[in-house]
Structure formats: C-alpha cells, structure tokens
C-alpha cells in the first residue's frame, strides 16, 4: 500500500509524470487550476498506486512524495 501526495502549487502541468505511470493513474486535472494557473497532476485511483515512484523520478519540480507501508 503506497500513498502518493502532490504539492500542487509547485506543479507546472508539464505532464511528464502522466507518461511514465505503469498503472496510468496519474493525470492532469481537467477541472482545477493551481495558483500558477496550470492544471496540476493528480492521482485518480490512490488504491492502485504501487509506490514505484516513476512519477516522482521524472518530475522536474519535486512535486511528488511517495510513502509506503513499512514491512511488518
């Protein structure tokens, strides 16, 4: 179980994260804009996130933070 969070005010809507997600659950928001005026990236199905942090790896603006449940 992984938790993905976005620092939306830093997102420039470049969309690179949406091209690398293996689960295709990262998308640019269609109906919201952030304080910079961009459509920010968002996760449409958090339960499907596998915590691979591909999105974070390619994000140029350090928008994304990923947490994973510690192994029991």
């Amino acid at each position: 179980m992984a938790k993905i969070s976005f620092r939306e005010d830093r997102c420039k809507g470049c969309g690179l994260c949406t091209t690398v997600c293996p689960k295709k659950i990262v998308q640019l928001s269609r109906d919201r804009i952030n304080s910079k005026g961009y459509h920010p990236a968002e996760c449409i199905d958090e339960s499907a996130c596998i915590g691979c942090f591909s999105c974070g790896t390619i994000c140029p603006d350090c928008v994304i933070t990923i947490e994973r449940e510690a192994a029991k």
């Binding site: 420039k12 994000c59 350090c62 994304i64 990923i66 449940e69």
Partner: peptide, 26 residues
Amino acid sequence: ANTVFQKPHALCDVPLHYCPGCTHGI
C-alpha cells in the same frame, strides 16, 4: 509509513524558475 521518495535535503525548498517540463529540475 516510510517516505520512499521526496525532495532531497540539498535542494532548496523554493519553486524553480525553469519552464514546464525543463529537465534542469530533474
């Protein structure tokens, strides 16, 4: 929960001036 990916400490917590999608940020 363990944070497995986040902004590194040596990078300042400020917005970068680069254009959207510019790989300088990476």
